[in-house]
Design a protein around this nucleic acid. Structure first.
Lengths: 226, 226
DNA sequence: CGGACCCTTGATTCAGATCAACGAATGTGG
DNA sequence: CCACATTCGTTGATCTGAATCAAGGGTCCG
């Protein structure tokens, strides 16, 4: 299936938004649309084909698996986000869909060529990659010394921010994109501990749980600050 | 002090190596040399002036400090490495010298202009930033679920790699760039635990300690794999 | 209706934090 | 050159927060 940028839901937020129409159509020839369902793998660590993609809808997780088979979530990808590898010879991490997702996929070399051809695209990607780097370091800081309470609270606030339209204020009411197990994998905790912390926050009156995934921030000030 | 690229120790490894001589001289006009001593701060988190720098010699740490004043090391920077912020309005993290260090410092806007002017520079930085991103995720994975034993062992191996000239094989014999306390801050452990693990590795015959900082890898196979 | 998940809650255990003491190396001022 | 303070690392004893082990409930789906 070829790309139809004109109806792309993230056409003016994604990296390719810096291109003009003609350039984008040219780039579109090198890409393909791909749809994933929950749990499907987009890239697997070690794959020798470099590739990359822009996320149009849904959410992805970037993970690594250690020797004893425990999975660690390294990052979440939201719509308009970019994943993958343009330069390296192989994929460093697994990329898996958290739910149904739609993407625009490119081969690594093809995208590297586009960067060469359209310097603005490279710049846009540089900004984006720096943002990802800061986000990764943010998670590192959160995960580092903080107590379980602080980690879960920090993850809640960060997801509330991601769920909001305006980047400044968090959504007061949203659905967790992750299961308990996935939250645990992201925070370096166990399912049970995550569950207990959510219970605690609800008892404290900081949040209200609506079903398994629904969260309402009743009094964010009561959440342990990091 | 103006820059003297012709005698720069990292002139063909740093990001600016992709520029030709004339371009580099042009860029050099926007930069300044700066020398730091152990513990001196290059950038402080929250500073409203964006700036960036290439490290010519020595080593830096990128850190963040949480509410209770505990410091977390997010990344180490080695010669030819690049730190800082070209686009964002403020510095996200602290950058501090681990020992004496020499750098090439640019204002954020000046460097952003250079990227605009020399697309190759932007591309080089994109590669570099992606590498940093992978390194950060590597640390995240290491720090995530691993035991204290695995973390310290992983850090040793990673430092052995950084200390080696050839990137494929680790140095068998090197000096730790970090104090025990700094290793602890990087790994999310305490000084005491780091010290105990090193003692254990030495007892197991995996390493030999030479003074406070010296490490000899006697039998790396005995180090707990991650 | 039965099975498969996913989540919650309670009891117990354990790895690493914390507390405490000490030794070695380095620096400082008399 | 020595007395003294300071910093850094090691080692031991104790404590504790989160992991692990265990059980049960809710929901979805065939």
């Amino acid at each position: 299936m070829s790309l139809a940028c004109s109806v792309c839901p993230v056409r003016d937020r994604a990296a390719c938004a810096v291109l003009d129409e003609a350039e984008r159509d040219e780039l579109a020839k090198a890409g393909r649309t791909r749809k994933l369902t929950k749990g499907e793998t987009l890239f697997a660590a070690g794959e020798s084909e470099a590739a990359c993609a822009t996320l149009k809808s849904g959410a992805l997780k970037i993970t690594s698996t250690d020797v004893d088979g425990r999975e660690r979530i390294l990052s979440l990808v939201h719509p308009s986000g970019f994943v993958g590898e343009m330069f390296g010879p192989y994929m460093r991490h697994d990329v898996v869909a958290l739910g149904d997702a739609e993407l625009c996929v490119f081969s690594g070399p093809a995208f590297a060529d586009a960067i060469e051809k359209y310097p603005r695209l490279g710049q846009a990607l540089l900004r984006r990659t720096q943002e990802d780097l800061f986000a990764s370091r943010e998670l590192l800081a959160l995960t580092g010394n903080a107590s379980a309470e602080q980690r879960v609270s920090g993850a809640l606030l960060s997801m509330a921010r991601a769920a909001s339209d305006s980047p400044c204020h968090p959504a007061m009411q949203f659905d967790l994109p992750l299961s308990r197990g996935e939250m645990a994998d992201m925070l370096g905790l166990t399912i049970e501990t995550v569950s207990r912390m959510l219970t605690r926050f609800e008892k404290d009156g900081a949040i209200k749980r609506n079903g398994k995934r629904g969260i309402e921030l009743v009094d964010p000030a009561l959440l342990p600050q990091n």
